[in-house]
Design a protein around this nucleic acid. Sequence first.
DNA 1: AATTAAATCTGGTATATACCAGATTATCAC
DNA 2: GTGATAATCTGGTATATACCAGATTTAATT
Lengths: 235, 235
Amino acid sequence: MTEKHYRYLQQYFHDLILKKKMPYETKLPSERELAEQFKVSRVTARQALQHLEAEGLIYRSNRRGWFVTPPAVIYDPANNVSFNLYVTEQGYTPHTEKLMQQIESANHKIALLMNIPLGAPVLFLHRRRYINQRPVLIEKLYVNVDLLPGIEHEDLTQSLGQILRTKYQSPYRDMDLSFKATALPDNEAKDLSTSTGQAGLQIERVNFSDDKSVLSVDYEFWRHDAVTIEISIRN
Amino acid sequence: MTEKHYRYLQQYFHDLILKKKMPYETKLPSERELAEQFKVSRVTARQALQHLEAEGLIYRSNRRGWFVTPPAVIYDPANNVSFNLYVTEQGYTPHTEKLMQQIESANHKIALLMNIPLGAPVLFLHRRRYINQRPVLIEKLYVNVDLLPGIEHEDLTQSLGQILRTKYQSPYRDMDLSFKATALPDNEAKDLSTSTGQAGLQIERVNFSDDKSVLSVDYEFWRHDAVTIEISIRN
DNA sequence: AATTAAATCTGGTATATACCAGATTATCAC
DNA sequence: GTGATAATCTGGTATATACCAGATTTAATT
């Protein structure tokens, strides 16, 4: 019998959480307490916690502790519903925080995508989005101000799609999507108050108008445990 | 200045790999050697390696060492092209290994999805798929033998979609897709010769025939660094 | 009661060390 | 050469310990 002490601790909380004996957002005992209770070193306890984190069962909040992960929200990028709406519909409370908003000069990549001159003005928007007070998503998006004049004066904690539908006659429906499971970059990890290198889900989305011009380019970093992507393909 | 010794090592290989000074599949020095060369403890060296792994820059092969990750393959689940084809088209060499094939009794979940009686026979297929000799994907799929009689006698290292197109008159085009970034379960991690708890991408796919009956249910576990999902939504 | 400052708690980083288990390589016998 | 065996190399698991840095709580001050 190989020992693998950390497995005990992992299994213990695995079972507790799956049997719903620990409600979501419950704080686990501190690493030092766990080490003592399970008679392992703190390093070993930590390894168990990191495995549980990888499983998506617990998450860390920077230097505050470990908490039981709430259920993942289901996100269908193709179904053009705003963050606020689909989060609400699933019984959670959404919140959006605007971290930064400014007019920038388009870099090479953005200019190419939007088919605008290099250095042309674009609206850059940096947002943090919460589900039930928990920060789950960092969004950086570039908006084509050429096609959407005055967009920068709207309330940009709202869904962009919503604004385009109501204030402009340019709803987007066509989009190119890309997903990749990768570590959160340092800044995003910090903004999500998790640790650097934490697993995340990176989504890139290019939104097209009816006439196939690019309205916006969206970069999203999600906590890996916060979201499940679901898409229906119908031909 | 906070130290964070592991950052040096991480940054060093990060740069080397991004500048393509280390070809794909290059083996890194052993953890003990790295610890010595960078004058850190092995634990610290290991931490740096784990961060690089989370970034998708290196991967481990069980007790063989750490290697530079080759580029991720681009996978469009909606574009109904076989694994063998899209891997080949992107310049890599695919390979499929059948780990198990048997007729099983449908469990509750499968029976419900396929709209067949509980315990009705389904074909279970367990496959491991490689890109350039590297195991990247574990696939478990359940096939509706009712709709596809004799399917179990086909060469099931081939693409299922391909077989359905050529041998049956039941190509699938419609599908429900689900993606989740999560740790690889122990068995899948072992089959991919990586360590338990390693980050992965879980894909579930339900394939429909023209008349909306379920042809197959597909569970895929990918190494997180081996794939980027890209989908175009056109309305 | 509100503000400020200090103490404490928490996870994050780091060292040195040991032994285990599987993968690989070298060696030996034939 | 071939095959079995032993040695070696590699990452995996584990201990004990220390100090750091940010978040939170407590205590002191006004």
